[in-house]
């Protein structure tokens, strides 16, 4: 029973990893790609690690450690990366009502 649950979690997590990949390919600019990448990989990895924990309960502690580490560092690194990308002037999609308060506050015309 537990192993079936583990397998299902594993497939669900892997599906979210595919979603992350699709998001990376389909999204039009860096910041949107980061959005898709972080959210889907975080949930996806948490689910797959949870699935493995169900399949191998004796590994649960170490898997929890990995999951905790990813949960804390993944949003942080994408945040640093997003700021760097914005700062380096990575191209963004030109859209009608685009707001960019960060560029405004820094004083560069976008």
């Amino acid at each position: 029973m537990l192993s079936i649950l583990g397998g299902l979690l594993l497939v669900a997590g892997a599906a979210f990893l595919v979603l992350a990949g699709l998001g990376l390919v389909r999204m039009p600019d860096v910041l949107n790609r980061i959005q898709a990448g972080t959210k889907a990989t975080t949930l996806g990895t948490l689910l797959t690690l949870g699935g493995f924990a169900c399949l191998r309960p004796d590994w649960a502690l170490k898997l929890l450690l990995i999951a905790l580490f990813i949960l804390l560092t993944n949003p942080l690194s994408s945040q640093v990366l997003a700021h760097a990308a914005h700062r380096a002037g990575a191209r963004q999609t030109p859209l009608a009502n685009r707001v960019d308060r960060l560029a405004e506050d820094r004083g560069d015309a976008s």
């Binding site: 999204m27 600019d29 910041l31 963004q92 859209l95 009502n97 707001v99 960019d100 308060r101 960060l102």
Partner: peptide, 8 residues
């Protein structure tokens, strides 16, 4: 791909 991004 319904997006309309911005920074607030």
């Amino acid at each position: 791909l319904p997006i309309d991004p911005g920074i607030v």
